[in-house]
Design a protein around this nucleic acid. Structure first.
Length: 427
RNA sequence: GUGGGCGUAGCUCAGUUGGUUAGAGCGCCUGACUGUGGCUCAGGAGGUCGCCGGUUCAAAUCCGGUCGCUCACCCCA
């Protein structure tokens, strides 16, 4: 509605308290889980040099940047993702840091594209990364963080699943199926789109872009109908190169199973992910209903830090946005009701009690309680209505009779019961 | 960037083949109720009918454009 003279920019959100409550609910859960895993919080600038993204993330991302030329003639971009910033920050200081580095952030990210369901021009994204450890245990740890982030918000294995793959294994499978070295990138792109593409179109793409014969393409498509560990084993288990990669993926799944998270994990080699910098295990989290776009995506990116000019360090991490997650929580009825709350509301019977009421309110605030009172002189009825509206747990009624006896009346707003509190307890 | 659907009060919506001062519920404000909230009752504020133009004696209603929202495509954090 264009009632205001100044409308919001398309794709951007306002956060009045009732909406900020949901965002905080999500972010507090993310932060709790991050700390539980020993991750440290960091942040970076929301505006970065454009070139930080154009080469590193792939052409797809570069085309949809919120970018412009600043007053100093610099080409800049609102950050569309956090990983390049992380790589730069670590590039400057990782040499002096003990490994592995476990960091998390909750940046607001920006993309310039038309908004649609689950996708705005701005969102908050939880990032957690482990840098400096190439063992598959780090990959498992990172996925466990992501899964626990959702569990912390009340979601269960009935609500979402993690689909995992490994680009190294996929590469060996494609090679085994006859894809030439210089066609691997094209084949990756086709596999990534398999689920959104009609089968005959996929077959045609495999023939023209990946250089396969019609029979090979069909065989590959059959394989990707159920591209899990058993399928790989049955089909390509006799090849050593495949076996090595398969073993690592098995360890990955075994680690997550040992943590008790096995029911969340499904191996599916169709998961590739668009970003160019991923080098190993990749994963995406989806709602079980399959109605929403991916809730979370991540993987291993062992070359990125080096590309950005830092110490060559292996790394693995993920990003999880607040928009799709919020939709899933809403669908599952997991958004807590918004309610104002206050420990005390101080009511003055008349203007004469005002100074004493202010003194009491401030004494309670000094003790850490949340306290409010009517800012103008009002009838007791109105003050109580205000107290109820603001969610006060207890109302302190400061009246002449009680003050004369050295006390105030404390009214419990839930039960309606009243008791007296001595002024000596409120100093 | 392409295409579909939708724009009426703060919110959810009604508004008949175009017809006089555009309505309801919820919310908000005031009062009944200047020493006790939730309930009830009475009253009130709040609308360039997204915007611009056209057709017409007459437009919320029909037409065109535009902006916004939304869904899908493209693409994907």
């Amino acid at each position: 509605m264009a009632t205001s003279a100044f409308a919001r920019l398309p794709g951007f959100r306002d956060f009045p308290p009732e909406d900020l409550a949901l965002r905080s609910h999500i972010q507090e859960a993310w932060r709790r889980v991050s700390r539980r895993y020993g991750f440290l919080e960091y942040d970076g600038p929301p505006l970065e040099p454009l070139e930080l993204y154009v080469e590193k993330s792939g052409a797809e991302i570069a085309g949809q940047l919120y970018a412009f030329t600043d007053k100093g003639g610099r080409e800049v971009a609102m950050r569309p993702e956090m990983t390049p910033s992380l790589a730069r920050i670590l590039g400057d200081r990782s040499r002096g840091m003990s490994k592995p580095i476990r960091w998390f952030a909750m940046p607001q990210l920006f993309r310039y594209e038309r908004q649609q369901r689950g996708r705005l021009r701005e969102h908050f994204q939880w990032n957690a990364d482990i840098v400096g450890e190439d063992d598959v245990a780090a990959d498992a740890e990172v996925l466990a963080v992501a899964i626990d982030g959702l569990r912390e918000l009340g979601l269960t294995a009935a609500d979402f699943r993690a689909r995992v793959s490994d680009r190294r294994l996929l590469r060996e499978v494609l090679r085994a199926q006859g894809v030439a070295e210089d066609r691997l990138a094209a084949a990756f792109g086709i596999i990534d789109k398999l689920e959104r593409m009609p089968r005959d179109k996929a077959r045609a793409a495999l023939v023209t872009d990946a250089g396969l014969g019609a029979a090979e393409a069909d065989a590959l498509l059959d394989f990707f109908d159920s591209a899990d560990i058993a399928a790989v084993q049955t089909r390509f288990g006799d090849r050593d190169e495949v076996g090595v990669e398969l073993e690592r993926l098995k360890q990955y799944v075994a680690a997550l199973t040992a943590m008790g998270l096995g029911e969340y994990v499904e191996v599916d080699l169709r998961i590739v992910r668009g970003l160019a910098y991923y080098t190993g295990i990749v994963f995406e989290l989806f709602d079980r209903q399959g109605e929403l776009r991916a809730i979370c995506g991540g993987g291993r990116y062992d070359r990125l830090l080096e590309l950005v000019g830092g110490e060559p360090l292996p790394a693995v991490g993920f990003g999880m946005g607040d928009v799709v997650l919020g939709e899933l929580l809403a669908e599952r009825g997991l958004i807590p009701a918004y309610a104002r709350s206050l420990d005390y509301f101080v009511v003055s019977i008349s203007a004469e009690q005002r100074p004493e009421a202010l003194r009491i309110a401030h004494a309670l605030r000094d003790r850490g309680s949340s306290v409010a009172y009517s800012l103008k002189e009002q009838s007791v009825t109105k003050q109580l209505k205000a107290a109820a509206r603001e969610g006060a747990r207890e109302v302190l009624i400061v009246g002449p009779d009680e003050l004369a006896r050295g006390c105030v009346v404390a009214r419990n707003m839930g039960s309606g019961g009243e008791r007296e509190i001595a002024l000596s307890e409120l100093s």
